[in-house]
Write a protein that binds this DNA or RNA. Structure first.
Lengths: 150, 150
DNA sequence: TATTGTTATACTCTATAACTATA
DNA sequence: TATAGTTATAGAGTATAACAATA
């Protein structure tokens, strides 16, 4: 198909260049995140848990909602991270049924290290743009995401 | 920590706004892709397999390399997709050890449907930008990614 | 009765190691 | 001997359903 006739375009399904660029960018970014996590024996989901708990103490259900996962899935994720000493569980003071989750000191340290690691790992990519274009890209992305968040 | 004193910024670790924007954008995009896949009972990885095979017939090892996975992982992925009738295996004509993988008609149809589905699912996000800014964003992303690919 | 979380179960995804067949 | 692929095995991530404890 590499030598397809001129009547058939080389990439017949490229309906929307921006969508393709976003998807490709997402895969590149995710690959960097995944690698950064793997270097610390963390899955993407475990990294997200650490990121969420960096400045919060939340209940199991809230954590599951944040991540779009089932409560039962959270039990396993938190079990494994707790066993590794990255986070802790404690009963809620307000609701006897609820359990609150928060980072341990080790978990907090790892979360900081990971954040710095990811920034460094992405810098070869971001720094291919000159600073002005970096700011333009950031502004466009933020505008696009902000409209979708609110 | 929500009511932290003014001496401590609300987001103490925001070293690089572009990195944060890229990561957030990647998660939003991946969520859309994952949802589009789940609607068709496909994992992200299975979707990537379909995307790769859309215009190619490749060997197991090449597929594993494309995805950054082990050969043995590919065996399982291809087994399940083949069992669902989405793709097929055939021995290589040139190398008796090699196996080539390619989309079945059903797989090709699904790949097209998925591609359109993803475009539609992302359009609420992309269309928050006016067309000129969409083109600017696309150009910036492509420039950034191209420098990293080549 | 409804909600919070866990347990039991099952399936997919992933890797490592050992194996078969071909080169 | 090296390479292509599969099998066996193990562990993580995920969901559904059933359950216990609390509200």
């Amino acid at each position: 198909m590499v030598t397809s006739p001129p009547s058939e375009p080389a990439e017949p399904h490229r309906h929307n260049g921006l969508v393709d660029a976003l998807v490709q960018c997402a895969f590149v970014t995710m690959a960097v995140l995944t690698k950064a996590g793997a270097d610390n024996d963390l899955s993407l989901t475990q990294m997200r848990v650490l990121a969420i708990l960096r400045d919060r103490r939340v209940r199991m259900t809230a954590l599951a909602d944040h991540l779009g996962l089932e409560k039962s899935t959270m039990t396993g994720l938190v079990d494994r991270a707790e066993k590794r000493g990255l986070l802790q569980r404690a009963p809620s003071a307000e609701d006897g049924r609820a359990v609150e989750v928060f980072l341990s000191p080790d978990g907090a340290t790892l979360a900081e290290r990971l954040y710095a690691h990811v920034g460094q790992a992405l810098s070869p990519t971001t720094s291919t743009l000159v600073p002005i274009d970096q700011r333009r890209l950031q502004a466009l992305l933020e505008r696009m995401l902000e409209a979708n968040t609110s």
